[in-house]
Structures are given as structure tokens and as C-alpha cells.
Design a protein around this nucleic acid. Structure first.
Lengths: 127, 127
DNA sequence: CCGCTAGTGATAAAAGGATATCATTAACAC
DNA sequence: GTGTTAATGATATCCTTTTATCACTAGCGG
């Protein structure tokens, strides 16, 4: 039987309050000084996937990221500088028209790449 | 000085005649019985990137894929069954409208996921 | 409070992709 | 044909992400 533990709640809270999907390592860092181990983070994330509470977002670069499953349809913006990923709302019409004859479309993902506001404001001045 | 070698020509030919971007391993397999080593394939692909003859296409799943740089703007369809990747022509309007204020868009990628004609025709009947 | 066992942290190790190494081969200028 | 050295094949190694292991901890029903 599944037990209530502080770790589970903390991980879910971190993901809920994030502005985009987070990787296991990012969740672990967000947990900061709570000394929850990385293995536990992976376990809780995979458990969330199995339970359907979380969805996995895989982007071209980097590790798998996770976000709550109850967010409405949206896409993602990845900052090429700080590598953070942000949710972006909306979805253009006409996706289905791209599918060539004979193909069966299940899902689609749109990945925007560029610089996020934080990195734009830092401009060229390296940190 | 760069020398003409059969390997280079073979790799470029494989990529040119492919219907989508190929990974190093896929190129290696396509070379079949030519006994060109995987290290050579990686070398030639990276060389192509540096020279600007090839572009790298990174999709959520799997390794980096490569295709000729001279193809017009297009996107990709990945078969969830056989994992092959196909080029798809066209691009919906309104991508730029997705970008939230403060973000700077450089590139975008649209990834369609589903089943390719080969796998659709095989239907549920496992191979 | 007890006992059972799910959960945990630390870390070893796996998995997958890409690069480095090195002795050997072969392209090309002469 | 010969010499120079870029290119190659085989494979060891690296790197990053993820999972497995295992002794210890703690949630919760009784």
C-alpha cells in the first residue's frame, strides 16, 4: 500500500509551481537542502508517470522532463542559453494538414528555441 | 588537405537518398557490407556539420540525426513503432504568435508522432 | 507502542551515444 | 613508384542519464 511521505508531497509541489517541465536533476536541485536523494526523485517521478499524475516531456536536448498531467494542451520554449524550458500556451491550426497520406498522427509537439527573458535582459554580457 | 575517399561519397549518398534524417547508426547500417567503421561514420557526419553540408536534427527520442543542409524548411514525423523519421513538408502559420512577450525566437521544430505507412499496413499483427 | 514492510539515501553500475586512441591503410603530389 | 600524412577500423574510453542494490528508516494498521 502506498504511504504518505514528505518526499512525495515536496516533489509534486515543486512540479506544480514550476513554469515548465523539470528534469529529475532540476527537481532535485529545487528541493535544495531537504537532503532528498536523487534516486528518490527518480522513483517518485516514475511513480507519477505510472499513476497518470505526471506526463513526460522529452525535448531534443537533455534529459526527460516531467510536468503535472492536468495542464491543458500547450507546447514548450527552450532557452538555448540557460537551457530552461517554459510552457507556452496555444497551438496553431493546420498541424493535421502536415501529415502526409498514409501516416497516422497520434501526437505532436512544437518546440520553440531561442532566449528567455532572463537571458535576453542579460544580453551579450556574459555572467 | 581533405582527400577524396569512398567513405565520404557513400555517406553523402546515403543521406541524400534518405526520406528523412538518419542517425550515425542508421547510416552505418545503410552502408551494410561495406565494412566502414562506425567511428568513420561519426567523423564524416561531424565533418559535414562543420563544413555546413549537413544539419543536425535532434528529436526527443534517440540519437542525433543528420540530413543534407540544402533541403527547404520542413518538419519531421517519427514513427512510434519502427522509430524511423520522415521529412514532412509545410509549416503552419502562427508559430511566431505562440512566443510569449519577452522571449526571443530563433528556431522552431514540429515533431509529429504516430505510425508510418509501413507500420499502419502491418496493423496490429506483430512482425 | 509494535511490527511489518514500503520508502529512503548513498552509491555502484548499467545503458546508450559519442569520442579518443593507435597501428595500419591508402590518397595524392611529385 | 615513392613518400608523406590524412583517413580508416577496431575498440577502449568517456559522459550523461537512469536504474539497481542494500542496509537503514519511518508510515501506519493494529
Amino acid at each position: 500500500m502506498r504511504r504518505y511521505t514528505p518526499s512525495r508531497k515536496l516533489v509534486r509541489d515543486v512540479l506544480s509551481s514550476a513554469t515548465g517541465p523539470l528534469s529529475a536533476v532540476e527537481v532535485h536541485e529545487a528541493l535544495g537542502n531537504t537532503k532528498i536523494g536523487i534516486a528518490t526523485v527518480y522513483r517518485i517521478l516514475n511513480e507519477g508517470l505510472r499513476d497518470g499524475d505526471l506526463v513526460c516531456v522529452e525535448l531534443p536536448s537533455g534529459p526527460k522532463r516531467f510536468e503535472p498531467a492536468d495542464r491543458p494542451h500547450h507546447h514548450h520554449f527552450e532557452c538555448s542559453e540557460c537551457e530552461k524550458v517554459y510552457d507556452v500556451q496555444g497551438c496553431p491550426d493546420g498541424i493535421a494538414q502536415l501529415v502526409p497520406p498514409g501516416f497516422e498522427l497520434d501526437f505532436h509537439e512544437i518546440i520553440l528555441t531561442g532566449r528567455c527573458p532572463d537571458c535576453v535582459s542579460t544580453d551579450g554580457r556574459a555572467s
